[in-house]
Design a protein around this nucleic acid. Structure first.
Lengths: 216, 216
DNA sequence: TAGATTGTTAATCGATTAACAATC
DNA sequence: TAGATTGTTAATCGATTAACAATC
């Protein structure tokens, strides 16, 4: 396993490969070629091979890759085998849902607790996790050395929460607030922003419809 | 307004600019320079200027852009001023939530109805929208000339639903199923896939932590 | 006129694709 | 050995950045 930093585009594809490999039936052959993966996913074979080469040296001429080993290696590279403590700020509907969702464990995320400025929301949830007052945020993050934060507060408060997170030692932010966050270069913000998705859809549609018109 | 097709990266930024402009206070000056936008969003000024130039010719030396006109133009380019009928396949929790959500109107999306293969789910929702049996999907899409489809079925059924959508004339697919869909080139699939987001977060974190270790 | 700001042209950078040598 | 498949090196493509001329 190599470790020069991978681009966003590569990581996205690696995640696709992993998902595809895991979805193979149990009676499938135990090895698979990059070309097969590429065809199944509608990508170029060279691209798949290059992507895989950037994280693994399991490929063997004539044989390809052993599926189970490749899955292992991808999970490691993508961090699904870690267990990273994660905190949430904003204990509204979404925040609570994320706090309760068990599935994050599969991706190496462990939702520790949520924080909210509204102290009436604090207490324990049915699933036994704590919702704590925001004033304890920094203290707890530093103590537990937490590096991942999730923002589920309204847009107006998102930047302030973001600043607090950075001050508290958080390195990676998963932002559900529909706003652009300004952060230092070494901090990653991953936006989960519906407006952006919709803009892409909309624009592609307009283009498609124009093309059709031109054809007539 | 010009109209050569815009790249995904540009569209994402345009959506950010629009959001930022809308968030300006009412008493802000009525014009704004690309440099100001760039600084506020932590981007390069040339990039902002080039992005804006690709959709507008409102920029005036010394003055910049009139905020309200720019908002209008961005909304048009991003399609927020259209009203695009949209259908949903999969009337589970997520499908129903999307069907009920009023906010899509602001982005030019009108959720017409949802479809489900399970006929026990059919009927009218509290918000007065219909959940229809999947067997009527093609007929209705063709009749209403629907071009946008949302997939909220489990991963196993997503490809079949996707194929049905394409057959029914849909051009743009918003996919919430955690799986890779294979489509012809002229169809856009926008994936709303948490696993991919998480992979990006995780990998960045690993990188950051390694760097810190090296510094010691 | 001077200065701010635009839009464009050219240079750089990074990612994808094509060609090919290496190997089982 | 022949053929499939890998990984790498070079070529292409596209996007970002830098430099600069145009303009109000």
């Amino acid at each position: 396993m190599k470790c020069n930093p991978l681009s966003k585009a590569v990581l996205e594809r690696l995640s696709t490969y992993l998902h595809f490999l895991k979805s193979l039936p149990a009676n499938a052959p135990e090895n698979i070629s990059a070309t097969t993966i590429a065809n199944e996913l509608g990508l170029g074979d060279v691209q798949v091979r290059k992507d895989l080469a950037s994280v693994s040296n399991l490929g063997r001429p004539r044989i390809g890759y052993i599926v189970s080993c490749l899955i292992d290696e991808l999970e490691t590279v993508l961090g699904y085998n870690n267990s990273n403590d994660t905190v949430i700020v904003g204990a509204g509907k979404l925040g609570k849902a994320l706090l309760a969702y068990e599935g994050f464990k599969n991706y190496g995320f462990n939702m520790v607790s949520a924080f909210d400025i509204d102290e009436s929301k604090t207490g324990q949830t049915e699933t036994g996790k704590n919702i704590l007052p925001l004033c304890r945020f920094k203290e707890i993050c530093k103590e537990k050395k937490i590096k991942i934060g999730v923002i589920t507060v309204p847009a107006e408060q998102a930047q302030a929460v973001c600043d607090l997170m950075i001050e508290s030692g958080i390195l990676v932010i998963w932002n559900f607030a529909p706003t652009h966050l300004i952060v230092p270069k070494n901090i990653l913000v991953q936006n989960e922003n519906m407006a952006t998705s919709l803009a892409l859809l909309s624009s592609h549609l307009t283009e498609q419809l124009n093309e059709r018109q031109n054809e007539l």
